[in-house]
Amino acid sequence: MGLIENVKDDGFEGLEHNFVTGQVESLVQWARTRSLWPATFGLACCAIEMMATGAAHYDMSRYGMEVFRASPRQADLMIVAGRVSQKMAPVLRQVYDQMMEPKWVISMGVCASSGGMFNNYAIVQGVDEIVPVDVYAPGCPPGPETLLHAIFTLHDKINTGELLQRRSDNGGGAGLTIEQRDGQSAPLLIRGAQ
């Protein structure tokens, strides 16, 4: 109360401390950027590099991100680190659905991004068939530097608010469209053509 009274009486002269003004939205976005908590979703080789990023040498805690949450309900960011198999795909989607909004996804490595060198029956050809992806990190596996770069890119996108806008436009991400590509029935499933 005292603050408002002081301003009422003396104008800005009445303030005792420095302060910053801004939109609530930018303040919230700033806060979100600095406290992204990743869900542990290590799958394959990339998970080792993700752990390396969290360890002392690359030290993700500099960006408020060292707290890998085992429960998806406490996490904001899912780093899909590694190849996603047909058997894992429903699990991945369930973990994503359990995360609270706002949530973001980094697809780490070529296997998660596009299937990579494993273009076969077992691997989902890109995790974006299952969940909406915000940033793709290339590499097999991406080094910790690449992952950090992906995280910075995500920070920028969170800061501009671009991501949340997009999500409200299209109603919140891709549906689960995994079908068995077994080759038993000869025609191959072509993505986007069904």
Binding site: A44, R83, S85, K87, F118, N120
Partner: peptide
């Protein structure tokens, strides 16, 4: 859960 079809 990580079957990659590497032998194929």
């Amino acid at each position: 859960y990580l079957h990659t079809g590497m032998e194929k």
